[in-house]
């Protein structure tokens, strides 16, 4: 299950979307989130959905993987949909089977909310699927730059984030390894009564903590020996490159907002 989850993961590629500047993509997502709330009719939601599918198409991420990887999210989606259907009691009565009553407005709301949810999840997933975590970090660091004035430790936060991201696969591997080692010694998190499962977490967590501390210590030593003394006087190796397409993407977004406002009921 976990390995099929693609929410928050990065698939390398060189599509148009992959090549965009992370600052543009992050801004794009935030603006898009705001724009979504303009939609309020079948046409506007249809336009949003069409636009989102176009972005998915441009990213060259296969829709199958996207849908397959976001399965857990769909459970939530269906749940919200049902909630709306059963609890909105406006408009004409469409279905009436005993205690189940579905009204037209309920169905409409259910579909709208689901589409809204879907496009948000798709667009944010496309952001993380097409942007390496380190680029996202870079983007955030630059976008948060102005907050340095109010003493927000932006550099340190970004470094922390990039190191955490860098160590996620390492720690995942290690978790898997220790889990297997303890399973081989007869401890099993995956089965048995809840009490046993909770007990089985300890032999997993303690070695993980011990190792994470050891790694942190080693890493601190390595960083210090390599001359790390905080953000002061540091230069940056990674340079961001804002191109025409990045400006264009934001223009397109403004256009989209305009269209939505025009078709809004």
């Amino acid at each position: 299950m976990m390995e099929k989850m693609i929410f928050g993961r990065f698939i390398p590629g060189n599509s148009l979307i992959h090549q965009m500047d992370p600052r543009a993509k992050i801004s794009f997502v935030f603006v898009f989130i705001a724009i979504v709330f303009i939609a309020n009719s079948a046409i506007t939601y249809g336009i949003l959905l069409g636009f989102t599918l176009l972005v998915v198409f441009l990213s060259k991420i296969r829709l199958y993987f996207l849908i397959n990887g976001l399965k857990p999210v769909f459970i939530l989606l269906i749940f919200t949909f049902l909630l709306h259907i059963f609890f909105t009691r406006e408009g004409d009565l469409l279905v009436d089977i005993g205690f189940i009553k579905i009204y037209e407005e309920g169905l409409r709301q259910g579909i709208f909310i689901s589409v809204r949810f879907l496009v948000l999840v798709f667009i944010t997933s496309i952001l993380t699927l097409t942007t390496s975590p380190i680029s996202i970090t870079d983007g955030i660091e630059v976008l948060l730059g102005p907050f340095k004035r109010v003493k927000l430790p932006v550099h340190e936060l970004a470094l922390m984030m990039s190191i955490s991201l860098r160590f996620i696969p390492t720690l995942m591997d290690e978790t898997g390894k220790i889990l297997k080692a303890q399973m081989a010694r007869g401890s099993d998190i995956g089965s048995g009564p809840v009490k046993d499962r909770i007990k089985a977490v300890v032999p997993l967590l303690i070695p993980l903590f011990v190792s994470a501390f050891k790694r942190a210590e080693d890493l601190a030593t390595a960083m210090e020996v390599r001359g790390y003394r905080g953000g002061e006087g540091r230069t940056r190796y990674r340079q961001l490159n804002w191109r025409l397409i990045d400006s264009l993407s934001l223009v397109v977004l403004v256009g989209l907002a305009g269209i939505l406002v025009y078709f809004r009921v």
Binding site: K177, A181, M183, A184, R185, G186
Partner: peptide, 21 residues
């Protein structure tokens, strides 16, 4: 699979990482 796992013991690489008690 518990029986199988009892009968086949594995010493993983760097097994000291599994110590916890």
């Amino acid at each position: 699979l518990r029986d199988v796992r009892r009968q086949v013991g594995i010493v993983f690489q760097f097994p000291e990482q599994q110590l916890f008690d």
